[in-house]
Design a protein around this nucleic acid. Structure first.
Lengths: 191, 191
DNA sequence: TCAGCGAGACGGGCCGTCTCGTCTTGACAA
DNA sequence: TTGTCAAGACGAGACGGCCCGTCTCGCTGA
């Protein structure tokens, strides 16, 4: 009945479980993923998973966060905001277009939709660094008075998520560049 | 083994199943919703559901589409684009902010992330009408040369989905109005 | 020694299929 | 137009299967 003792936790098991989770995620996808399968692949007991995580969703989140290695992300600042935004947008578009990375993002997004508490962790530990990096770059730029930086960040990444989520069209560099043009028009100083 | 004959389909059953689905959706939410419960509530056999729909997600989609009554959706055109956009954005924000509707949208979004075919149906039958309505309204407006209307629609709804998905902040009317201002700045003629 | 561990048994819930007997429907004959 | 009838859709629910989350074993290592 008492809480487990983290000091006695087996690091080898933890690693095996996270690795197995990522492997199975890549092989079968999130929906087919089961706690039993993770345990079997990791050579672990199901109880070990339920002892340290809440369930499938918590394991998946940890497995993905574990893989990302959240360093202090920063955008390059060439002085040319349009160029800098193009760079980051093209990179993100490439990420979303890559089937393997997209599968990961898909799993994460499902996670975000199912569990409110985990949604916060995903947002803060995984996404926020990138959004904040763009926000920081915007802070040094010459913008129209009164624009809300958070809203601008949403203006940049929102359409990308929208197109990815709804599959209304392909995610190409041309599309990304067009988006940057629209965003630049939205935030340019009044003259 | 052969396909069922639509001519012999019982309309009373179909209605009862769609009604029961919406009722249970409102009472218990999508995750707790089961095919067995729908059948029981509708006074139908499970087989009747599986005969005409693929499963839970297909029934829910039909139930929602059925409720929306997809007539030719059009935006009011007051001549003032900013005002028209504010109206539609505020309405959509209200929809997303409503916990009950949001829960169902969330659930359907999960299904679209899992099932590509279903994603197409959701997009075309549920979302496209609204997106196209905005696009049609934009067509009659005075815009900067060379802007892609599809991209503008994404610029409008993308940030909304982004904020809803990642829960980066509350969906308020003020936020919606601010978004409209940014969008207007992005598409206004060059002078 | 004692809690974490791998392994797996266990009851429970829902899935999707199937099998009943009943009821409805459309085709065809009179 | 009306009566007959087979096909098949229907409500109800039994069924095997899968996965869940909990539990109980010895075993192991800190």
């Amino acid at each position: 009945m008492s809480a487990p003792d983290p000091a006695r936790r087996n690091e080898r098991s933890r690693r095996a479980i996270l690795d197995a989770t990522r492997a199975l995620l890549a092989e079968t996808g999130y929906t087919e993923l089961t706690v039993g399968a993770i345990a079997a692949r990791a050579g672990a007991g199901k109880q070990t998973i339920y002892r340290w995580w809440g369930g499938k969703s918590a394991v998946v989140l940890d497995a993905l966060v574990d893989a990302v290695e959240v360093g202090g992300m920063t955008l390059t600042d060439t002085g040319d905001l349009r160029a800098d935004l193009r760079l980051v947008l093209r990179a993100t578009v490439a990420e979303f277009a890559d089937p393997r990375l997209s599968a990961t993002t898909r799993a994460l997004t499902i996670e975000t939709l199912i569990d409110d508490e985990l949604a916060g962790h995903v947002r803060d530990r995984l996404l926020r660094p990138q959004l904040d990096a763009v926000k920081d770059r915007l802070r040094t730029a010459d913008l129209r008075d009164g624009v809300d930086l958070d809203q601008v960040v949403e203006l940049i990444f929102g359409p990308l998520y929208h197109r990815w989520l709804l599959r209304t069209g392909p995610l190409t560099e041309e599309w990304a560049d067009g988006l940057v043009d629209l965003v630049m028009a939205a935030i340019r100083p009044d003259r």
